[in-house]
């Protein structure tokens, strides 16, 4: 059996026990303005930021940015813009025509402009990738300093599928020229409240 032969080869060849290092997170601490740094970093990776103060204004703000979106899926209870409803029975291939998806994000990471979302928030896993444009709603108070904090925050979740998402899909595979919109969503806007 390959399993046994691999495991026994490892046992035979592995080096002497080395213990795990202690991680002192203090080394990585910085006093930065979390919202400002998050916004700056998200913009540097091609994402957009819209700050707004009243949750009632959300739909108007989204409409302003995406006036032509026809096929809209909203996974957020804060938005009423949905033109299509989905459930966990929805066949992912049927979502090919989606223009805009709206999702509640749980955590923002200031050091890299990434946002954590999981399939609790968007039900059908392909949604944030197959849509043309993606809107995430994030509360300013949910922005943390760095990835260590972010993993700490999400450590208690029920694990199915989730991701850190930083900006829109991109590639530089043709002569190192950056092109936004490779295979996933061609734009990402984070609405910060």
């Amino acid at each position: 059996m390959s399993r046994e032969s691999i495991l026994s080869a490892i046992k035979k060849n592995k080096p002497e026990q080395v213990s795990l290092p202690e991680i002192d997170l203090g080394i990585f601490h910085e006093d930065v303005d979390l919202v400002e740094t998050f916004s700056k970093n998200l913009e540097s990776v091609g994402g957009r930021i819209v700050s707004f103060n009243r949750i009632e204004d959300l739909d108007a703000e989204i409409k302003k940015r995406y006036p032509n979106a026809k096929h809209i899926v909203s996974c957020s209870s804060e938005s009423n813009l949905a033109t299509m409803s989905i459930s966990n029975e929805t066949e992912p291939h049927s979502l090919e025509c989606i223009d805009l998806v709206i999702i509640d994000a749980q955590v923002g990471v200031s050091e890299n402009g990434a946002v954590w979302i999981s399939d609790n928030d968007f039900i059908v896993r392909v949604l944030p990738f197959i849509t043309n444009d993606l809107v995430l709603i994030l509360s300013k108070k949910d922005i943390c300093l760095h990835m260590h904090e972010a993993y700490n925050i999400i450590s208690k979740r029920y694990r199915t599928f989730g991701l850190f998402l930083s900006g829109p899909s991109k590639t530089a595979d043709i002569e190192q020229c950056l092109v936004i919109g490779a295979q996933g969503a061609v734009s990402l806007t984070v609405f910060l409240i």
Binding site: V45, N112, R125, S166
Partner: peptide
């Protein structure tokens, strides 16, 4: 600062 997508697969749908 990080790849665009860092996807965590823990369970098939």
């Amino acid at each position: 600062p990080i790849t665009t997508y860092s996807s965590h697969f823990n369970k098939p749908s």
